[in-house]
Computed example of a mutant assay.
Amino acid sequence: MKKRFIIIILCTLALTACASQAENDEQQQEDVEVKGIHVEFELPKQAKVGESVLLQTTVTYGEDELVTDAEEMKFEYWKVDDEKNTVSVEATNHEDGTYSSEVKFEEPGTYEIYAHTTAKGLHTMPKKAITITGEQQENHDQESQKEEANAEHEHQQEFEIMLNPLGEITVNQELEITIKLAMDQQPYKNARVRYEIIPENSEKHDWIETEEINAGEYVNSYTFKKAGQAKMIVHVTDDTGLHEHKEFQLEVNE
């Protein structure tokens, strides 16, 4: 009887320890999953034509770890009524978690700017807008830089990222997402395509790797956990140095 009682106690202790370990493992896994990079993008709302504008970011990993060795940090900007002509500027790494560049806008108008950031194997690209006021200036150096940047990406101007129709999107339903890539109307093969999904009012970004099931056709599934607006950014890279992206707005129903 006494032996039986001891065995029961030992079994109970073992089960308790296993449960405790499982909870710890689950908590550690959750901590790893929510850890990501955060980019604080500083930009004035308005500036004048020809005025030097500071573009600056502070990059952190997790809650407060400064990232001093980002793999990529560059700014990409364009006028909102001329989205095909973009200019990319590499940022200076100040080795304290901050990165910056200075640019001058020679034409009045509204410009949108992406802060492309890759760090710890993750990529994000917060976007902000700035309004430039004043008279247009003639600046051949600026035009030359713009033409060089456009020439560098000329082969990408005919690049297409197409999302297959999704139909109605509902919560907790597995959704197959298919992206088709084309260059000069021909399927674009052997790319790395990732979906960055950002639910409304969420700090968490879900990254989904895809598989190329047919030439230029990339697929994976995702399940939305809550209703509302969501943003999906499709990132495309490959070994040739291609780096393209396209943003889609999605509506998730109950």
Rank of each mutant, 00 (worst) to 15 (best):
H123E: 10
E65H: 07
Q156G: 04
I198W: 07
L55G: 02
K146D: 06
P199G: 03
S88K: 11
A230L: 05
K3I: 04
E143H: 09
V87C: 00
E138K: 13
D82L: 06
S20H: 07
V39W: 06
A47C: 04
E148A: 14
Q186S: 12
A119L: 01
E76P: 05
G167N: 07
F248I: 02
Y195E: 03
L54D: 05
V67Y: 04
E209R: 08
S202R: 07
Q145L: 13
E148C: 03
A230W: 04
S101M: 00
L13E: 09
T110A: 06
T98I: 05
F75Y: 11
H155V: 11
T133D: 09
E76N: 10
P165I: 00
N201K: 14
Q137S: 13
E102R: 10
K2W: 13
K225H: 13
K48F: 08
T223Q: 10
N24Y: 13
D69P: 04
Y114M: 05
N24T: 12
T92W: 06
E42G: 05
D25V: 09
D238W: 00
V34W: 10
K204L: 15
V59T: 10
T118D: 08
L54Y: 07
D82T: 05
I198V: 13
T210R: 03
E251G: 03
K104R: 15
Q27T: 13
E251I: 08
Q229T: 08
I233C: 00
G97R: 07
